[in-house]
Each structure stands twice: as structure tokens, then as C-alpha cells.
């Protein structure tokens, strides 16, 4: 009995926080738009009993999904989001790995402080931190003023409102999600393995490449998924730091929802996005499982 209850908890959680909202969105994606509150039809009318339910289901169809295939905007936006996500994940890894490595190799009594430094920025509102970047990157911003002052450049660089600014914003915001899993896998590593590798004739670089990197792989994979999955659907960073030309699926969703008042198509875009995300999430789960089994 207790066992059943224990198993039930995660399922109830999944049902209430994932499946129910998903089916609501799925239902809207099969509806048609209408000028009313709410702006779609049909809505379930239980007062008519069985006939009402049958009538409700007979009005649902897949035309919004067909619509998504007819305009190349949607897949281009999905692809562009994916591209931005892959590039920024790679950049985050490039920046995050040395930081995690440095933390793991630092004297043990420093580590809590270093950990604190990584987490501390989270205590400030995310929105304020992105706005701060607007102040740093703008044409009259601190970065340009510094570069002009040092004489490295003679005319201000245009960074804000370009994809470069989006990458900077994403790398900055998601960095802790990359550092923490890599750090935790590096910290557990036995340092005598490196000594052994060096004894057997490896140079330091070879030892790093052949021993450290493979041992930290679970952390790298976890970090990459933790960054990439939310970045694909990112809306706030591209809309604040990006230019008008930054095409991302989050933005397309916004336009369908707000400009076209077309909740059904917006929901269809969201359902497809979810299906696209399910693939990496399943891969991530597998990896976690494998790792758990390996540790047994």
C-alpha cells in the first residue's frame, strides 16, 4: 500500500503539471479561431450531456498542423532556434568548462566560496541582469566607452540588437547550468589517475584529453542538455538583446498569439516544439540512467 502511494506521487505530479496542461494546449491546437472570449471554438459545453461532448469532438481537426507545413516560416524558425541553441551551448561549454575545472582543482577550503560566486548572480532578478547587458552593449554603453577610451576602436561597435548580443546574453544567463554539473563530475575524479597517466608517459595535455575529459563526460552531457533545451524556446533574451532579424520560435509563437490572435495556430506551434524537444529529453534521460547503472 505504502509502495503504491510512493509510486503514485510522481505520476500525480506528472499528470497535474505536464499532461493536463499539454492536453489543454493540444485541444486548443485542434480548434478554430473566433472573435469572442476565449478567442477559439469549440468550447466544451457539458450542459448538453453526451451530445455536447460528441459535438465538441466532431469540431476538432488537424488543419492548423497542416497550415504549419504550408508556410516555410515555421520550420525556418525551428531551425534557426536550434542553430542558436547549438552554437550557444557550445560557447557556454567553452567558457564553463575551464571555470568548472579551475573550481575543482582549487584548494578544498576555497571551493564553497567559488561555488557561492557562481550561484550569487542568481539572487538578482534575471530581467534586471539582461537589462544591465543592454546598458553594457549599447552604442553608448560601457563596453564601447572602454574600447574607445583605450583606443582599440575608433567608432563604436554595434553589438546590441544583433545575434552577437543574443549569444552573449544566453551564455551569461545559462553559464551556471553548465558549470555546476561539470564541476560535480570533476570534483569526484580521483587525481591519482592523472598521476598514473603521467607515469605511463602521457604529457599533461594528453592526460587531460585521455583521462579528465572522458571522466567528466556525464557532467558535460548533463550541462549541454540543461542549457540547450530551454534555449530553444527562449523568448526574453532575443526580444530584449536581439535585433528585429533574430528569428526564433518563441518570437513566432508570440506573434501568432498576440498579433494574429490565433491561439489555435500558436498552440500547434507549441505542440510541435514540444515534440521536437522530447527527442533530446529522452536522450538525456537515457544518459542519466546509464550513468546511474554504471555507478552501481
Amino acid at each position: 500500500m505504502r509502495r503504491a502511494l510512493l509510486i503514485a506521487v510522481p505520476y500525480v505530479w506528472l499528470l497535474a503539471l505536464f499532461l493536463v496542461p499539454f492536453f489543454i494546449v493540444l485541444k486548443i491546437s485542434l480548434s478554430d479561431t473566433e472573435l469572442a472570449i476565449p478567442p477559439y471554438t469549440p468550447t466544451l459545453d457539458l450542459s448538453q450531456g453526451w451530445a455536447g461532448i460528441k459535438d465538441f469532438f466532431s469540431q476538432l481537426d488537424f488543419e492548423n498542423f497542416v497550415w504549419l507545413t504550408e508556410d516555410d516560416l515555421y520550420w525556418k524558425a525551428y531551425l534557426s532556434s536550434l542553430k542558436i541553441a547549438v552554437i550557444s551551448t557550445f560557447l557556454t561549454l567553452l567558457v564553463g568548462y575551464p571555470i568548472a575545472y579551475g573550481m575543482a582543482r582549487a584548494p578544498a577550503e576555497w571551493r564553497p566560496t567559488l561555488m557561492m560566486l557562481v550561484i550569487l548572480p542568481f539572487w538578482t532578478s534575471f530581467l534586471i541582469r539582461v537589462y544591465a547587458w543592454m546598458g553594457i552593449l549599447s552604442n553608448e554603453g560601457y563596453l564601447n566607452q572602454l574600447l574607445l577610451w583605450t583606443g582599440i576602436i575608433s567608432t563604436p561597435l554595434t553589438i546590441l540588437n544583433t545575434n552577437t548580443a543574443v549569444y552573449i546574453g544566453i551564455v551569461y544567463t545559462y553559464l551556471p547550468f553548465m558549470i555546476l554539473p561539470i564541476y560535480s563530475s570533476l570534483e569526484r575524479m580521483d587525481e591519482s589517475l592523472i598521476e598514473a597517466a603521467e607515469d605511463l608517459g602521457c604529457s599533461r595535455l594528453q592526460a587531460f584529453w585521455l583521462v579528465t575529459i572522458p571522466l567528466s563526460r556525464p557532467g558535460i552531457i548533463a550541462g549541454c542538455f540543461l542549457v540547450m533545451i530551454p534555449v530553444i524556446g527562449e523568448f526574453v533574451i532575443p526580444s530584449l538583446l536581439g535585433g528585429s532579424g533574430t528569428l526564433m520560435i518563441g518570437k513566432v509563437l508570440w506573434e501568432e498569439f498576440f498579433s494574429n490572435r490565433d491561439w489555435p495556430v500558436a498552440s500547434a506551434v507549441a505542440v510541435v516544439l514540444l515534440l521536437i524537444l522530447v527527442v533530446p529529453i529522452v536522450l538525456f534521460q537515457r544518459n542519466q540512467q546509464k550513468q546511474a547503472e554504471a555507478e552501481k
Binding site: D71, D72, L73, K76, A77, S244, G245, T246, L247, V252, E255, S259, N260, R261, D262
Partner: peptide, 16 residues
């Protein structure tokens, strides 16, 4: 018409 206008606007802003 709104859909035509929004689509045109997206094309102008993002090039697609």
C-alpha cells in the same frame, strides 16, 4: 487580412 499583415511584417523584420 491580419494574418497576411503579420506574415508580411515577419518577413520584413526577419527576412523569412
Amino acid at each position: 487580412t491580419q494574418r497576411v499583415v503579420t506574415r508580411l511584417w515577419t518577413k520584413i523584420k526577419s527576412g523569412t
